[in-house]
Design a protein around this nucleic acid. Structure first.
Lengths: 194, 194
DNA sequence: TCAAAAAATTGATGTAGGGTAATAAATTAG
DNA sequence: CTAATTTATTACCCTACATCAATTTTTTGA
């Protein structure tokens, strides 16, 4: 038990570490406080870190050639966030990460992750399982965009992520759903009438 | 070197195994031959396996409430395929997998995978990296549906997957892009004029 | 607490892609 | 090699969502 470092057992909930292991893990992370509006990651920069969100709310978005923003993902308490495409392949980010609500973040570099994987295979297993879940939810999202109308996707979103809905602006939700704010507004009106 | 079991080094390209390891791995897989039109996996069944495609072409699709099919993914030589949401979480499939071109498949169960992971950590690493790539490509696809028109997505598809395009019908591509065959036909006509 | 800025709504109109149906082209099977 | 079937194309009209342009509502900060 490592009562000493509650953040480690918070991040890796479900895994038990010795005090030494816990200290070792802790040494690989760095804490960051972000204010609303600040960017955690800028498009076109090389991505060295992935980020554990302890508190607050962030979003990953990219800008298309027409200058329009598209929200790929939100992250609230206990979620991980990064530009994973860039992080995994050591390339530059195509996305930026913006803080939407004041946040407490723990970042870890790819090198430190690899060290953890080597020393503590259970951490690699932990991340593999995280990946599996994230993969499944992306798959669900793709199927959603293929088969559902904007209104259905909106309903699905607020049911699936009630905690996120409270934290974000409607125009963020619209850019996540792939519609305009105006369309979302009309959808909300239609739903309210029912 | 395990010249004895070329399929093992084909599946796990880049990893070196002893002959014992190679035999051990081989024992976990089972070969399947599929004819065009056959289903490898049926919606509503529990998913015990994931499948390595040595040859041929398959697609994962789901049926929406209106009875329309949506293609989530294609798989050709050297790709893995399954209903991963169901496979990872031990639930029933929402998707089916159909053979599009006569295929040679090697299947492995989740239990066997876990055994491999325990015995050979490098296999777990291999799959973690596969997941990372798949994750990144799904992310790219979501961004694509958010930011590109059907025509742009079609162009992107044929450029990114020229080997797949040759194997599949246009209506499969349409259901992958989230449009009707009629719309795809119009898009192709427009492109041909240029 | 109130002005300024940000966010959301509404209306009018435009457009990409959908639905239906008929036809043409390509593939398959006998 | 031809008939049957599957796949792709085209034409016509329709709908979901976009775009543009005002407002209105909510939030923010001095």
């Amino acid at each position: 038990m490592s009562v000493d470092h509650p953040i480690v057992s918070e991040i890796f909930k479900g895994i038990t570490f010795t005090t030494e292991e816990s200290l070792f893990i802790l040494s690989k992370f760095e804490k960051i406080i972000l204010q609303k509006g600040e960017l955690l990651l800028h498009a076109n920069e090389v991505v060295y870190y992935q980020y554990y969100v302890q508190q607050g709310c962030l979003r990953t978005y990219s800008m298309d050639s027409a200058g329009k923003e598209h929200t790929l993902q939100f992250a609230i308490s206990d979620w991980w966030i990064s530009d994973y495409t860039a992080f995994f392949s050591n390339t530059t980010a195509i996305m930026s990460i913006e803080c939407i609500q004041e946040a407490v973040i723990y970042k870890i570099s790819k090198e430190h992750m690899e060290q953890l994987f080597l020393e503590l295979p259970k951490i690699e297993t932990f991340f593999r399982k995280k990946m599996e879940k994230a993969f499944a939810s992306f798959q669900k999202r793709i199927l959603g965009t293929l088969s559902m109308s904007a209104q259905e996707r909106y309903n699905d979103f607020i049911q699936t992520y009630p905690n996120i809905e409270q934290n974000v602006k409607n125009y963020h939700i619209a850019s996540y759903l792939g519609i305009t704010t105006e369309s979302l507004s009309r959808i909300r009106k239609r739903i309210a009438k029912t």
